[in-house]
């Protein structure tokens, strides 16, 4: 239910995968992070994501396990892409499923904030001015 990969993913397939966990699911929430084409007024030519192999997967797994323990949800799936990503393309998807929508919304919001906080993944932005490793958490 947790993956880091170079290739794109299908949002529909990922939602279906999470939905298959149980027939008690009554609400599914998905957060999809995509590559915007502008940063601080500069046009982004491309993005590159790097991760710490092993530790990044472990931290995403930890986020899923903590979400399943601390929120009233039934399943959570996380996919994050690495490598070169063009503007408009998918970066990250978090899908949460619960009996009721509110639990799914809360777990999803918590999970993306936690991913940004603890997952060793880095974004490099290339603009016409050059390359910069992003250091903030917007």
């Amino acid at each position: 239910m947790v993956r880091i990969q170079k290739q794109d993913f299908s949002v529909t397939e990922e939602i279906e995968r999470v939905k298959r966990a149980s027939k008690s699911i009554g609400g599914v929430v998905a957060f999809l992070g995509t590559a915007r084409d502008i940063s601080k007024g500069e046009e982004i030519v491309k993005l590159d994501f790097e991760h710490y192999p092993g530790m990044a997967e472990k931290k995403l797994q930890e986020i899923r396990e903590r979400a399943l323990t601390n929120f009233n949800i039934i399943e959570m799936g996380i996919v994050h892409r690495i490598g070169k990503i063009d503007s408009g393309d998918n970066i990250v998807l978090i899908v949460t499923a619960a009996q009721h929508r509110n639990d799914a919304f809360m777990a999803c919001e918590w999970a993306i904030a936690e991913l940004k906080r603890i997952a060793p993944i880095w974004k490099k932005e290339t603009t016409r001015k050059g390359e910069v490793w992003v250091e903030e958490h917007p």
Binding site: A56, A119, I121, E136
Partner: peptide, 10 residues
């Protein structure tokens, strides 16, 4: 041991 600059995933 790994040196981890500020994360910017997501």
């Amino acid at each position: 041991v790994a040196l981890l600059p500020p994360f910017s995933g997501g």
